[in-house]
Computed example of a mutant assay.
Amino acid sequence: MAHVEASVRRPQLVAAARSVLARDGVAKTSLRAVAAEAGVPLGTMQYVFPSKELLLRAVIEDVVGEIAQVIKASAETGGGLEHAIRQGLTAFWAKLVSGHQGLQLMQYELTIYSLRTAGHESLARWQYERYASIIAEWCQEAAHNAGETCAVPFGRLARVMLAGCDGLILQHVCDPNESRSREDLDSLIQMLTSLAGVRPAAAAAEA
């Protein structure tokens, strides 16, 4: 087999690990299983990722990066905060939740794994800080572009949005009822826009 640099092999192995994790779960994922999925010798796998813990850390970082990118790319920030919330969450659900139960289940498993594995607890915290930071940024940008104010700090709005989405996603994974989940998502969006209490900046200054 021709030599392939570790920097090139790494994303291939992470992709293979994601396939195994989505199919078999964290407990049944081993370096040997991932090597077989990627079609490489176990020695190659162990050279790039000497332990399962290092592999799972790379997978968590990869999943977080993908989801963060979709969240950031999905939000339209030119139509005001309420539009950004509605459009962003609707697009996120369509792209990464509906029909993607394996991805969402894998994400939950990896979060729990991080919290239960000594020395990896910070990964779970980083994961949610990353999501919340991106959500807060596009909410703030949308409000700023439209000359609006938000009734609560953008960081709090982002954390509540994230918590609400997590709950709906978990219910959807347990019972993937598309029509019910979309109705529930609409209700969450209404709650979030009410919490945001969007007002024109000029009106807020006069009040």
Rank of each mutant, 00 (worst) to 15 (best):
T90Y: 00
S194G: 05
G197R: 12
E37M: 06
N177Y: 06
A207H: 07
Q101G: 13
A33S: 08
E37P: 02
R116G: 04
A27I: 15
L185R: 11
A35Y: 05
G78Y: 02
A6K: 10
M106W: 05
V64M: 01
T44A: 14
E206T: 15
A146T: 08
V160H: 02
K72L: 11
L96R: 11
R180C: 10
A207Y: 12
A15E: 13
Y47L: 13
D186W: 00
A75H: 02
A124V: 10
R180S: 12
P50Q: 06
L81G: 03
L103S: 05
A151Q: 10
V8K: 15
Q127P: 07
A2L: 10
Y113A: 09
L105E: 13
V97L: 03
L13I: 08
T29V: 02
A94P: 08
E66M: 01
S122V: 15
Q171R: 15
S98V: 04
L157M: 12
S194R: 09
T90N: 11
E206C: 09
S179Y: 02
Y128Q: 15
A38V: 00
A201H: 01
V160W: 02
E53R: 15
V59K: 04
I135Y: 00
G102W: 00
E76P: 03
T77M: 10
A38F: 00
Y113W: 15
E76H: 01
I112C: 09
L21G: 08
R116Y: 03
A6V: 07
Y113V: 07
G102S: 13
R182S: 14
R199H: 09
R159C: 05
A143L: 08
A35V: 05
L185Q: 06
G147V: 13
H100K: 08
S122M: 10
L105F: 06
E109V: 04
E5P: 03
A146P: 05
M45A: 05
V63K: 07
G43T: 11
M191E: 14
A201Y: 01
V48L: 13
G43W: 05
Y128R: 05
A124I: 11
C174N: 14
R125C: 09
H120T: 14
Q101F: 01
R159S: 06
K52T: 00
S122Q: 14
E121C: 06
E61W: 01
A143N: 05
G80R: 10
V48N: 12
A151C: 07
L168T: 02
D166N: 11
W93K: 03
E178P: 01
A163M: 10
L192P: 02
A84S: 07
R182P: 05
G147M: 08
A201V: 04
V173K: 12
Q87I: 05
E137F: 01
E183R: 14
C165N: 13
G155K: 02
E109S: 12
L55Q: 07
I112F: 13
G167F: 01
Y128E: 13
A36W: 01
V152P: 10
L81Y: 00
A84G: 03
